[in-house]
Design a protein around this nucleic acid. Sequence first.
RNA 1: GGUCUGGUAGUUCAGUUGGUUAGAAUGUCGGCCUGUCACGCCGAAGGUCGCGGGUUCGAGUCCCGUCCAGACCGCCA
Length: 584
Amino acid sequence: MYRSHTCGELRLTDENKIVKLSGWVQKIRNLGGMTFIDLRDRYGITQLVLDVESRKDLSTQARQLGREYVIQVTGKVAERSNKNSKMGTGDIEILVDEFVLLNPSDLPPFTIEDETDGGDELRMKYRYLDLRRNPVRRNLELRHKLGFEVRNYLNKQNFIETETPVLIKSTPEGARDFIVPSRMNPGEFYALPQSPQVFKQLLMVAGFDRYFQIVKCFRDEDLRADRQPEFTQIDCEMAFVEQQDILSTFEGMTKHLFKTIKNVDFDFDFIQMTFDEALKNYGSDKPDLRFDMKFVEMKEMLGQTDFVVFDDAEYVGGICAEGCAGYTRKDLDKLTDFVRKPQIGAQGLVYVKCNTDGTFKSSVDKFFDEAKLAKWAEAFGAKPGDLLLVLAGPTDKTRKALCELRLEMGNRMGYRDKNKFAPLWVVDFPLLEWDEKTNRFHAMHHPFTSPKKEDLALLETEPGKVRANAYDLVINGVEIGGGSIRIHNDELQHKMFQLLGFTEQDAESQFGFLMNAFKYGAPPHGGVAFGFDRLTSLFAGIDSIRDVIAFPKNNAGRDVMIDSPSPVAEDQLDELNIELKKAK
RNA sequence: GGUCUGGUAGUUCAGUUGGUUAGAAUGUCGGCCUGUCACGCCGAAGGUCGCGGGUUCGAGUCCCGUCCAGACCGCCA
């Protein structure tokens, strides 16, 4: 037996028990006549004491120990004379009677502490050491709890967890596929799933009625802090449902998770905001509603002015930053630089300070008198002491820039509190998006998304205006999940493929199996997929999903710990009938 | 594909206009210390300034290239 207790569980009530503990040496404090050792495992830290007078041999042995040595000790639980209220086990210590060195350790390259001295690069290379640290382990414990509660909730709702294949078929729609060569079928390749999309629809045709899976998905696109080449979805599908049924079910799941894990009550129905509203008011299809600061469109109010920047602009709009009229020239210059960054792309920034004395000071005083600025303030609902920030330019681009500015102001004003949660559904996404590069439409969500019934006629005339039965769950400006009601009729599905520029043959060879399935009594169905990594990072209050993944990849898609991807042996390539092009 | 930031001791960082022997903290090692828990005190070791080239009397510092890491834009149905 290696241990009778863990390093986190002994209390004063265990006094005088003879116990056996195993764990890692966190820290040794040698005071000469007396040595303290902090012994750590996943559950906590217990202090060991060695007294040189009573056990000289043990004290000498203890001096040989180093950080992260694995040891086993036997001893008696004793009350501390100096208690430590910061630790759960702070009232007791173990008077060591015997110890065994189970395994020594090299000196770790960084300290295994909550506030480590290690940088990201080192921590990723030695991820197994990083995972010993409380904050990282806690994130994975949180992930475990979330997964557990998802299963718990969906199980109670009659969902069946079903596995779907990982080696599937490459399709041209959407993200780039990771492909896997087939040895037994020379010259042919599997693809790893971008999501189990078609399989879950086929499960609906099969009558499974309610399916879910916590499943890895793969997309070979460039990465970000919140994007990994392999990531995990809570993938769900339901039959005989309308959009609202799905929203209710998964709003319920979201509330359940927040209640059971964060003890946060959402005692209201989530807002359902249309895609158009979201763009008009927040410049984004994933607005952060932890704060208001809605856009105010000014073009109509302005009419013809002498200010050429406004007159030439397709869109003029702004936000009101409450209580920010005190911003200095330097602050405003910084904001101007911010919006002019190439990633934001605005040409400039117009500000109006609504002074507390009722006067106005703006960067466009030359063109607009006090009376006009007062009218602006009224339109913005601004009070004395507020600051108006206005951008002008092409509609889409300017809204996007204004969105970034709004978020930046939200940060500066402390509105984006990690402990506050603002969920909403964004609904009525467009069905199709025009792609300038390829000169064709592509599906905004995916090609199996159904158009709204009332917009069906537009499919022939103005496909770009057709709205879809598609929806996203957005929390704090992060897209946590998304889904749609699917097409369940092969005729409409054919038409969709046609609109997307598929030839009859391509559609048949790539998705024939699905349309064929639809001929055998496919039930109306729809579903949703949640980004499990993002959901976990939201719950953990961190921005990067890497910290909630045990072994993540870096921003170039590399695993720096195992050093992958890597070249393979010539023999392996031969077997697969693959010849590499010479590197450029 | 692009933009930006960084790379100096085991680690986290500082390093002035280009100028003497590249510093601090922490960690490590050695000594002292019987109530520590960020133990304390004394001492020591520890450097390919990412790599390659260039400018210069002289480069950690300036220039070019390259590699690595991170953030973002494009991309991601």
